[in-house]
């Protein structure tokens, strides 16, 4: 094997003080070392992307030959009330989940940012649901949410409140899933916000203190704007999470009652693996991916705009 690293040009490069070594443009080792990425990319990214573009114009159950349907899948999609229901469900999930998530994460992050004993312990405790598998969380919360003898309803009963039909009623099911998702994820966002808080230079607060700002004013005008990147992150990750919601409804509700917890991913799964509609499932995936990208871009724009103001 020849290695360009051994030849003379390299030594001259080493004498330069550039950060990036000026080496021959075609470093063969470079190709060699980066080859695994291209191989993986070709098989598991490029091929599926191209094939998904072919699939959306076909009807196919894998077993029998593909059938060209032109724009049939798209027409079906726009007439499909369950597709719209899945989008509505996801938006409803996000409307509950995101504010709850941000408020709780901020509260705990601000508290943990104080110099307190046992900070590490609290942080570790809140982070626990983040590391545990979503399926464990779903099975656990299925019991907590149980109508007749779930812990949550026992708790409500013990303080004299009525039982809540958490997963049984079409109105409560999605909020219940959102509450569970918040419980699972909030630890991660506490840590992210905490990192953001620690990056805020303390002289800003000191200066504001001299100007006589109250604690709330400091929070509103220093903390929040400085946390903008972290908030954006929460928004983006939650949005992607909302459209990727699968195992939670799959275990808790199966998408019901009355399809109110049918998530985008669950619907794709149903179309593909219950009904063998690969073409239509690919079309759904295509659209949901498109929506995710659009929502994320809009969020980024809006948050950046606010940061400028």
């Amino acid at each position: 094997m020849k290695h360009p690293g051994k030849n003379g040009t390299d030594l001259t490069a080493a004498t330069r003080s550039d950060k990036m070594p000026k080496k021959p443009k075609n470093n063969r080792t470079g190709y060699l070392l980066s080859l695994p990425y291209w191989v993986h990319f070709a098989f598991f990214m490029a091929y599926p992307l191209v094939f998904s573009f072919i699939l959306v114009f076909h009807e196919w159950d894998i077993y029998t030959p593909m059938r060209w349907v032109g724009l049939g899948n798209f027409i079906r999609l726009f007439q499909d009330s369950l597709f719209w229901q899945a989008i509505l469900n996801t938006l409803w999930f996000l409307v509950i989940h995101i504010p709850l998530q941000i408020a709780l994460a901020l509260l705990f992050a601000v508290l943990l940012n104080e110099k307190l004993r046992g900070r590490g312990f609290f942080r570790a405790a809140y982070f626990m649901p983040v590391v545990v598998s979503g399926i464990v969380i779903a099975i656990l919360w299925q019991q907590l949410f149980s109508m007749e003898n779930g812990i949550l309803n026992l708790l409500l009963g013990s303080i004299g409140l009525a039982k809540v039909p958490w997963l049984i009623s079409p109105e409560w099911a999605m909020p219940s899933v959102a509450i569970m998702a918040t419980w699972k994820n909030v630890g991660l966002y506490i840590v992210l916000f905490l990192a953001g808080l620690q990056n805020i230079p303390s002289h800003l607060y000191e200066a504001a203190g001299i100007d006589g700002a109250t604690a709330w004013q400091k929070f509103r005008h220093i903390t929040l704007p400085m946390l903008n990147p972290a908030v954006l992150l929460v928004l983006i990750l939650s949005t992607i999470g909302g459209f990727s919601l699968f195992i939670e409804p799959y275990v808790l509700t199966g998408g019901g009652p009355m399809n109110r917890t049918l998530s985008a991913m669950l619907y794709i799964y149903k179309q593909a693996f219950y009904f063998n509609r690969m073409g239509y499932a690919a079309t759904l995936g295509f659209f949901f991916a498109f929506i995710i990208l659009a929502v994320v871009l809009v969020q980024r724009k809006v948050v950046e705009q606010e940061a400028l103001e």
């Binding site: 990036m20 070594p21 000026k22 080496k23 021959p24 443009k25 075609n26 470093n27 063969r28 080792t29 470079g30 190709y31 070392l33 980066s34 990425y37 291209w38 990319f41 598991f44 990214m45 091929y47 599926p48 992307l49 094939f51 998904s52 699939l55 894998i62 992607i240 459209f243 990727s244 985008a264 991913m265 794709i268 593909a272 690969m278 499932a281 690919a282 759904l284 995936g285 295509f286 949901f288 991916a289 995710i292 990208l293």
Partner: peptide, 30 residues
Amino acid sequence: LRFRGRNLMLMVILFTMMIPFQLTIIPLYI
């Protein structure tokens, strides 16, 4: 290392990280 296509690869990596898996999961199964 410097080699032709390095910047392209960087862009491809960033691009693929943006692609939601909803788009590729069905063709990947196939």
